[in-house]
């Protein structure tokens, strides 16, 4: 769960610690968990991304390769975080995968409109969950080519 100050592959924005643990375990299973950072609310997520507050030493020019973003977050909501990322020229190229527990989420449409790159429902079944997270990690970290 430790993170490099400089090279972060995955930023996991998740307030549910169990979900966070399961996500990291899934990534680990696929050997993708080397550089995973976890923040627990929207405000911290914004600090991390824009290198503010306790993340002031971070270099904004080295953003995470992918952000896994839950929509239901304390303090600042997932949609607000998404909006901030996509409105800033420095960060808008960072892929954001919206991860949520519910198909019923009324914010799905809003998320896509704000520029979410994917929208994924977290399955209850652990195997399916591992599969889903693994696929996402593989895709965004290895297959997807970020702009230079």
């Amino acid at each position: 769960m430790m993170s490099h100050m400089h090279a972060v592959d995955v930023l996991l924005v998740e307030d549910n610690q169990q979900d966070a643990e399961l996500t990291i375990r899934s990534l680990k299973k696929h050997k993708l968990a080397n550089n995973v950072s976890v923040v627990e609310d929207g405000a911290e997520a914004l600090d991390f991304i824009f290198c503010r507050g306790k993340y002031g030493e971070r270099d904004i020019n080295h953003p995470p390769k992918v952000i896994f973003l839950d929509l239901k977050l304390p303090l600042v909501s997932g949609l607000e975080v998404l909006r901030a990322i996509k409105q800033d020229a420095r960060t808008k190229a960072v892929p954001v995968v919206v991860v949520t527990s519910s198909r019923e989420d009324p914010d799905v449409k809003a998320a896509y409109e704000l520029g979410a790159n994917s929208y994924v429902v977290k399955p209850v079944d652990f195997e399916s969950f591992t599969e889903a997270i693994g696929s996402l990690g593989l895709y965004w970290l290895l297959i997807n080519q970020p702009p230079k």
Binding site: D19, L22, R25, S101, S102, E104, V124, D125, F126
Partner: peptide, 24 residues
């Protein structure tokens, strides 16, 4: 609608934990 969203969202998370940790 809001209620059903909450139900689906908030009831699922513990279930996922139950299934996930059992698997672990």
């Amino acid at each position: 609608e809001a209620f059903s969203y909450s139900v689906s969202h908030d009831l699922r998370a513990p279930l996922r934990a139950i299934d996930g940790y059992t698997r672990i």
